[in-house]
């Protein structure tokens, strides 16, 4: 069932999305993107997906806004008029939509507990989590154990992004012309805005604290390595925004960040190698200890730490790469 609040939020999200496409000022578009992400996060929360909501809020509204702003400081703020003729695009889009409608018409997506998607595997996930892992957050159980291999892949995707950003605009990349604008928000910091600094400085410890809570409480409540990593990075990026990038770089130097990014993935993969050497399948945590339930929990905790370390390292590396670009 869809609640009226969901309907309302979804309509707002749609309008915001339209605003993103229409806005000529890219700064406005970025702000609208942030709002769009927050609205989607609220919808996910209402649809019983708090883990997804937390991630969407931290990543969509937080990290990607900072990335877009940093990139914009290096490129341009206004979208030029003209360009591609809209008619063919409209045609393609309309055909796509019509095809989906043909397929999905009269298929209520929401709520049916008897739908195959909810009857085939979901009950077994609950049952096995109860028997073999005894952790209350089944999302974490599926993420870290049943589909742990996907999650390893996800960590590698994030690492790939960091490799790509460093390769393209890192310190060793070819240097281009200097950035056009002097007001590099991401790089320079807001040192002259006292109220912002004070509010920010009060907020940062709480964000970091919350990050660690989310990391270590991920088996019990929404959260886990990914969300924690994103929050930790967000806290430090906020510090960088207030005090300047160099100050943030002094908190955790780039060399350490690189080691974190690679090390977290290696910890995750290392767990897999250890289980393999101990006679199990790759990432089969239950062989880690004599007691299978504790073994599963141990495996989950360790790989979640790996996820958190890699994600925070990667996001900060990316932030530094963008913020330092064009300032020599």
């Amino acid at each position: 069932m869809t609640s009226l609040l969901t309907v309302f939020l979804l309509v707002l999200a749609l309008i915001t999305a339209l605003g993103v496409v229409r806005a000529r000022n890219l700064f406005a578009a970025v702000m609208l993107m942030g709002i769009f992400s927050l609205l989607m996060a609220a919808v996910f929360l209402l649809l019983d997906a708090p883990d997804v909501a937390l991630t969407e809020a931290a990543v969509g509204a937080g990290i990607s806004t900072v990335l877009l702003l940093s990139a914009m400081a290096l490129t341009a703020e206004e979208e030029l008029a003209g360009g591609i003729h809209p008619t063919p695009a409209l045609a393609v889009v309309l055909v796509t939509a019509a095809v989906i409608f043909y397929g999905m018409f009269e298929k209520p997506l929401v709520g049916d507990p008897e739908a195959p998607v909810n009857t085939h595997l979901a009950p077994q996930f609950f049952e096995l989590t109860r028997e073999q892992m005894e952790i209350p957050n089944v999302v974490t159980a599926v993420l870290a154990s049943f589909r742990g291999y996907d999650t390893l892949g996800e960590v590698i995707v994030v690492l790939t992004a960091a490799i790509g950003v460093l390769f393209l605009i890192g310190p060793d990349a070819p240097q281009g012309s200097r950035a056009p604008s002097g007001g590099n928000l991401a790089g320079g910091g807001l040192k002259h805005h006292q109220p912002l600094r004070i509010v920010g400085k009060i907020a940062i410890p709480f964000i970091l604290l919350f990050a660690f809570y989310v990391q270590y409480h991920g088996e019990y409540s929404p959260g886990g390595g990914f969300q924690a990593g994103a929050l930790l990075a967000a806290g430090i990026i906020l510090f960088g925004l207030l005090e300047g990038r160099e100050a943030a770089a002094a908190v955790i130097p780039t060399r350490v960040l690189k080691a974190m990014a690679a090390g977290g993935a290696l910890v995750f993969g290392g767990v897999g190698v250890v289980t393999l050497l101990m006679g199990g399948q790759f990432l089969e945590y239950r062989v880690l200890l004599d007691h299978p339930v504790s073994a599963q929990q141990l495996g989950i905790v360790v790989i979640e730490v790996g996820v958190g370390v890699t994600v925070s390292g990667v996001l900060l590396l990316i932030y530094h790469a963008f913020a330092a670009r064009g300032r020599g």
Partner: peptide, 30 residues
């Protein structure tokens, strides 16, 4: 309970999305 599996898939997909965005922006800067 609601189904945990789609949520797990989407957590992964969100991460993929931000990774693509970061890489895309780096190319745009260049």
């Amino acid at each position: 309970f609601s189904n945990p599996l789609p949520q797990v898939l989407i957590l992964t997909a969100i991460v993929v999305g931000i990774s693509t965005l970061a890489l895309g922006l780096a190319i745009v800067v260049r």
